[in-house]
Design a protein around this nucleic acid. Structure first.
Length: 892
RNA sequence: GGGCGCAUAGCUCAGGGGUAGAGCACUCGCCUUACAAGCGAGGGGUCGCAGGUUCGAAACCUGCUGCGCCCACCA
């Protein structure tokens, strides 16, 4: 043999003859706990998952969505990891240089909050009891000690990641990438510092980006307040009465006749004595509220814009904890306490004209802690996203990056086409510190990671750190060594596919697109994209389709299921639910079902081993094989092609379902059963069957391996003697083995067997009870060859001397006559026949109706018409046959 | 306020102009030497409602109803 047959297991020269196998080695049940740990360690120590940047093989690469360093494995991780692992394992088997790169995210706010709580609990200290350096070193210490728990859990899951390339967003290399990126964007004026209204969390005491704010419809109040006196008065309506202390104007629409006379005049702001102008601004909607808006530029983003247009002062009346700082009776109150207090004071002055309560309106909450976000005027750093987002949109629009499923691309476009500037500074200590120094005379210098910061009196570094997603956005290239031109970057960038949930399109996917295209632009438009495809998954749900949440109590720890049913069972369940972009419900019973499947594979392979299945380089040619062998090899080839097709567009559910049904229904239930009498008979046919059985199992195990790696590895190495299925070649569909005639023939056999089984079941015959029967006419059908097999499956013995058939049924031109050694259950038989007759009559009616329809005859395709005729013919002969059988039944 | 998606068996979901599918659940019969985590057989759906297109609609179009999700600076 000069070329390697990809369907042969004979690939590594270290085969162990399966004849050496002792069936006693395998228990009658698969015990995952016995094999998973050792197998994983073996894979890792063999270096199977380590990619070689110097390899000549085509590269396949995936970077993991880095889990938070504080995180632990939940079903969502298990789900996505299973899919990424399957993709990578398949490509590796296909001969790609496959890299799945692991790592973690420092998760700024989340981690800092956790460590603060930890220090409070264990030492009773707050972060202010430490210097910044001390605090950060405590976070690092915490990270060493408690962080990264999820990495161990990934081993349990069987993740085939390259541990030699594990990265962390705060490690030296990635920090250098962050600094380099910041400097470049700064120099290109794509990063700037400005005083703006930003989202501020008064609890976390930091700025937030727009997407870190969750909106919900909350019940509040809507009060109308009269400003000014008499003819000069004007009524404004607000949900945030307390901010009136910071009003610096009232705005009306320029065309609003009601207020035209007031424009340009001043009125007195209640409770403060200040006089504020009435300005005209077309932003105001005359239809809403009273058509007059109080303007608080320092505490509302819209008002800030109005203030800019009219050159109004920004009067700050709250501090960073949202405590009122305006001098007077409200000073020191929290904003939520101040609200009723202010309304009360106004009411006493008779200025409250109307109060609507409750009034439901959208309120922003900190996505981290739920606190109501406060718009706050402050100096922050921003990324000017417009050019970056335009490029990110174009890369998808022009097909350089494909999104699966395609209809989720709209969501991506909606975002990148409407993105606001991104606030990237955070008032935290844990993260990448902004590399900008301020001088004593107001100088501002951005310092690259390899440059020396300015020194001397009065120079200080910006105290803020960057948004976690800034470093995450660099992940596809920072992890490969950027900004250096490393072999890894050369080999593995752009990455092949990004697999992640549709819920972080905005947080992460869009930002990687923007940063990748920008940072790697020297590679040209095709190669600068961070990934060629984006495979979006849905979210994991409980078995009733509900979101998992702690408050519902329906959160599942995947490790518990892995302990109970094995890792493969959990993986298979998750993969089987993975329809692109669609949420995935999972329930424990389904995991049990997957466990059962793994066990079934186990036992089927045991059967093969006990019966001397052989795994040879070549299976005998078709002309030396029986129909059953040709059939299963034909199906194997078809299924292999189907699976490959499904992988191309990430249809893991179909991959899994196809293999499940092929393995269980076709191989285990039919082929194995059909092979039993052949194997028992021995001889050349038995040898051929042993070879086919070995091949079919070998290939099936390899096809299943990416999804259920452990049980397939255990069985495949035993069956084939190969080193590891991890490095076995991926099966290639062999069109030469397709045999539609054999498939049709076996379909007939299945029909015959199933019909007789139904009869037996209806007649209450025990499955094991042998019945004498004649298969009249079978010699004239293509089932002639299969008589012995049919008899074996149906426990039909040949008619003997005293053969006296008491029942008959006909299937496909075969009349099965059975000697039931007694009366048959006439009622049951009548019921059965009448049911079949009704179905046949219905069918015949439908078909003849169609054929009588002139429109149908004139316009339907010929193939459909002839198919209809054929079906009518079959139905009519069924009717004749069934009526005859009913008539022949003894009456009563 | 915009935009998107979904309504198919008891549950969770595939499918997609020409014979309604799966898993689990359910019923009946079986410990048939690979497997009771199994084997065999079976029941169960006018594919949300109303129109339309078509020879033919569960599928395509329109409207409606009911859910779900995303986005949003009408105070």
């Amino acid at each position: 043999m000069t070329t390697r047959d990809p369907n042969s297991a004979d690939h590594d020269g270290s085969r162990r003859p399966s004849a050496a196998y002792d069936p006693a080695d395998l228990a009658t049940q698969y015990t995952p706990a016995d094999v998973e740990g050792p197998l994983y360690e073996r894979w890792v120590s063999a270096g199977y998952f380590n990619a070689d940047a110097g390899s000549a093989k085509q590269a396949f690469s995936i970077v993991i969505p880095p889990p938070n360093v504080t995180g632990s494995l939940h079903l969502g991780h298990a789900f996505q990891h299973t899919l990424m692992d399957a993709l990578t394992r398949r490509r590796r088997m296909q001969g790609y240089e496959a890299l799945w790169l692991p790592g973690m995210d420092h998760a700024g706010i989340a981690t800092q909050t956790l460590v603060e709580r930890h220090l409070a609990d264990t030492e009773g200290k707050s972060k202010h009891d430490f210097s910044r350096e001390e605090f950060v070193s405590r976070v690092w210490k915490w990270k060493q000690e408690y962080g990264g728990k999820i990495l161990g859990q990934m081993r349990r899951l069987g993740d085939g990641v390259d541990w030699s390339r594990e990265r962390f967003t705060m490690d030296d290399g990635l920090s250098r990438a962050v600094g380099t990126m910041f400097k470049r964007l700064y120099d290109d004026e794509l990063i700037y510092r400005a005083e703006r209204i930003i989202n501020w969390c008064p609890r976390c005491l930091t700025a937030l980006s727009d997407i870190e704010v969750d909106h919900s419809d909350d019940e509040g109040e809507f009060v109308s307040i009269r400003y000014g006196e008499g003819a000069d008065s004007i009524i404004v309506a607000t949900t945030r009465a307390e901010t009136m202390l910071g009003d610096t104007a009232v705005a009306v629409h320029p065309d609003d006749e009601r207020y035209r006379h007031l424009i340009g005049r001043e009125i007195e702001l209640p409770l403060t004595g200040r006089r504020i102008p009435i300005v005209a601004d077309s932003h105001v909607d005359p239809e809403f509220g009273t058509g007059a808006v109080k303007v608080t530029p320092a505490h509302d983003p819209n008002d800030f814009e109005i203030g800019r247009r009219h050159d109004l002062p920004n009067l700050v009346i709250m501090d960073e904890r949202a405590t009122i700082t305006a001098p007077g009776p409200f000073e020191g109150l929290d904003r939520l306490e101040a609200r009723p207090a202010v309304v009360d004071a106004l009411r006493q002055q008779g200025r409250i004209v109307k109060e609507v309560r409750p009034y439901t309106h959208a309120v922003g909450h900190c996505s981290r802690c739920g606190t109501v976000v406060e718009p706050r005027l402050s100096k922050q750093w921003f990324v000017r996203v417009e050019p970056l987002a335009a490029a990110a949109g174009d890369a998808v629009r022009d097909g350089r990056v494909k999104i699966h499923p395609a209809d989720l691309a709209q969501r991506y476009f909606d975002w990148v086409d409407n993105m606001h500037d991104w606030c990237i500074s955070r008032q935290l200590w844990w993260g990448h510190r902004i590399p900008v120094w301020y001088g004593p005379d107001g100088e501002m210098v951005c310092v690259g990671p390899d440059d020396t910061p300015p020194s001397g009196a009065g120079w200080t570094q910006d105290p803020d750190v960057l948004d976690t997603w800034f470093s995450s956005g660099l992940w596809p290239f920072s992890t490969l060594g950027w900004p250096d031109r490393t072999p890894d970057l050369e080999k593995f960038y752009p990455t092949s596919v990004l697999l992640t949930g549709y819920d972080i399109i905005f947080f992460w996917v869009a930002r990687m697109m923007m940063f990748g295209l920008y940072a790697m632009s020297d590679l040209g438009p095709e190669r600068s994209v961070p990934f060629k495809e984006i495979a979006l998954t849905g979210l994991i749900r409980d078995q009733f389709g509900r979101k998992m949440s702690k408050s519902k109590g329906n959160v599942v720890d995947p490790l518990e299921w892995m302990d109970a049913y094995g890792t493969d069972a959990v993986r298979f369940t998750l993969a089987r639910g993975a329809n692109p972009g669609t949420d995935v419900p999972v329930g424990e019973e389904w995991v049990q079902g997957s466990r059962n499947f793994c066990n079934k594979i186990w036992n089927a392979t045991r059967f093969a081993l006990m019966n001397g299945a052989t795994v040879a380089a070549e299976v005998p040619p078709a002309d030396e094989l029986a129909t059953t062998d040709r059939w299963i090899l034909s199906r194997l080839s078809a299924v292999t092609a189907e699976v490959d097709g499904y992988y191309e567009d990430y249809q893991f559910a179909r991959v899994s379902d196809t293999l499940f049904h092929f393995a269980w229904d076709e191989v285990f239930d039919w082929y194995v059963e059909l092979s039993k009498p052949v194997l028992a008979a021995g001889g050349a046919r038995a040898d051929a069957t042993r070879a086919v059985l070995g091949r079919v199992l070998d290939v099936t195990l390899r096809l299943l391996h990416p999804i259920v790696p452990f049980v397939t590895e255990e069985l495949w190495t035993t069956l084939t003697g190969g080193e590891s299925v991890v490095i076995a070649p991926w099966p290639v569909a062999d069109p030469g083995r397709r045999d539609l005639a054999a498939e049709a023939e076996i379909a007939d056999l299945q029909r015959l067997v199933t019909e007789v089984r139904r009869f037996r079941s209806d007649q209450g015959l025990k499955p094991t009870q042998k019945v004498a029967a004649a298969l009249a006419g079978i010699e004239k059908t293509r089932l002639a060859e299969h008589e012995a097999a049919a008899r074996a499956l149906l426990r039909l013995t040949p008619p003997g001397e005293a053969f006296a058939p008491t029942a008959s049924l006909s299937v496909l031109d075969v009349t099965v006559e059975l000697d039931l050694a007694g009366a048959i259950d006439v009622a049951a038989e009548r019921k059965r026949l009448e049911k079949d007759l009704a179905a046949a009559r219905k069918e015949a009616g439908q078909m003849s109706g169609k054929l009588a329809n002139e429109g149908f005859m004139a316009k339907a395709p010929d193939a459909v018409v002839s198919k209809t005729r054929e079906r009518l013919g079959i139905a009519e002969s069924e009717i004749v046959r069934l009526e005859a059988q009913l008539a022949a039944l003894p009456s009563g």
